[in-house]
């Protein structure tokens, strides 16, 4: 098992190198001259030349890449020409805010998705099962920004139960409760699609397990249904469920971008939205790099958890 974990850890290195190359090349795919695009049409020739040498655009591509890599490893994410400030000092606190929203959404998706999926499977054919599965088959097709807007209209405007936007009350003293209160709507909007998908797949995974011989074997011993379900069925259905959750992480990270924009949550997604409309390419580049690195890291954790609870998998991998 440790052998697998170490090889999985080492695998992160080429992936991260690939990610940095791709993100680096982004700025060179901008049609036309990046310096011109960043400074706008009215920039003077000397300003353009200065920016080109500042960005290293006059150097060969490989040297530019290694210079850029050196900078980002030391935490220098570049300079925003629109905001006139260092990107790292602007973006890193926002990255933390994005992590809060993403984790909260993930927790909601896991609790509601797995919970309702398991209940649907155990009470297969019941009204709960039918209604919930019908809802979740539609729920998987809902755009996050739309459900975010609808939740905002219903629960912040029509019935002002929750705050419309932001992360903390500007007048209040903040505090964890205030944060939670502001977190409810964006986190629910982000997680709903994943709740639907996780619920459907969890239901299938649990049903596959319930079908197996050992369940009827235990039943013949008069073990209670609850006991069998909790200690055996769920325990055995856990690896596929963890896998399902792992696959949803990417959707939740992507969905959080939209919730941040709708609810003005001060995260990387919102910063990137502003950057896109002002064509602040260095900022977009840094945002994408941060989120992608976060995603690589989360995938690593999911894979390691998977291997730890599912010994069969690591046998097949080490082969």
């Amino acid at each position: 098992m440790y052998k697998y974990i170490i090889s999985r850890l080492l695998y992160v290195i080429p992936v991260l190198i690939g990610v940095t190359i791709l993100v680096f090349l982004m700025i060179h795919l901008i049609p036309g001259d990046p310096a011109q695009t960043i400074l706008g049409g009215e920039a003077t020739k000397s300003a353009l030349a200065k920016l080109r040498s500042q960005m290293g655009l006059d150097q060969p591509l490989i040297i530019q890449y290694f210079d850029w890599l050196k900078k980002i490893i030391t935490g220098n994410l570049g300079f925003s020409y629109t905001l006139h400030m260092n990107i790292a000092s602007e973006l890193l606190p926002k990255f933390w805010n994005s992590i809060i929203l993403t984790l909260a959404s993930l927790v909601i998706a896991i609790i509601l998705g797995v919970g309702s999926g398991v209940l649907s499977a155990i009470y297969k054919g019941s009204i709960f099962d039918k209604v919930f599965m019908a809802i979740s088959s539609i729920g998987a097709s809902i755009p996050v920004f739309w459900i975010a807007l609808m939740l905002m209209w219903l629960l912040a405007l029509q019935y002002p139960i929750f705050p419309i936007n932001g992360m903390v009350n500007m007048r209040g003293n903040g505090g964890p409760l205030d944060l939670l209160y502001h977190l409810v709507l964006p986190a629910f909007a982000t997680s709903l699609v994943s709740v639907a998908v996780i619920a459907q797949l969890t239901r299938n995974a649990v049903l596959d397990e319930i079908k197996k011989d050992y369940v009827s074997f235990f039943k013949s011993f008069n073990l209670s249904k609850v006991h069998i379900n909790i200690f055996h069925v769920l325990r055995n259905a856990l690896p596929p469920i963890i896998n399902i959750i792992g696959l949803q992480v990417g959707y939740i990270i992507g969905g959080a971008l939209f919730s941040e924009i709708v609810f003005s949550w001060p995260g990387v997604g919102q910063a990137m939205y502003t950057a896109i409309s002002s064509k602040d390419y260095p900022m977009i580049q840094a945002g994408i790099l941060l989120i992608a690195c976060g995603f690589v890291f989360v995938n690593l954790i999911v894979d390691i958890i998977n291997i730890m609870i599912n010994p069969k998998l690591h046998e097949s991998v080490s082969k």
Partner: peptide, 24 residues
């Protein structure tokens, strides 16, 4: 396939946003 792996390191929505933002 290793080149494809690099693309899996991005949530697909993020990658779409990145490419569309670059292309305009």
């Amino acid at each position: 396939m290793r080149i494809m792996d690099v693309f899996f390191a991005f949530p697909s929505v993020l990658l779409a946003i990145a490419i569309a933002a670059i292309l305009g």
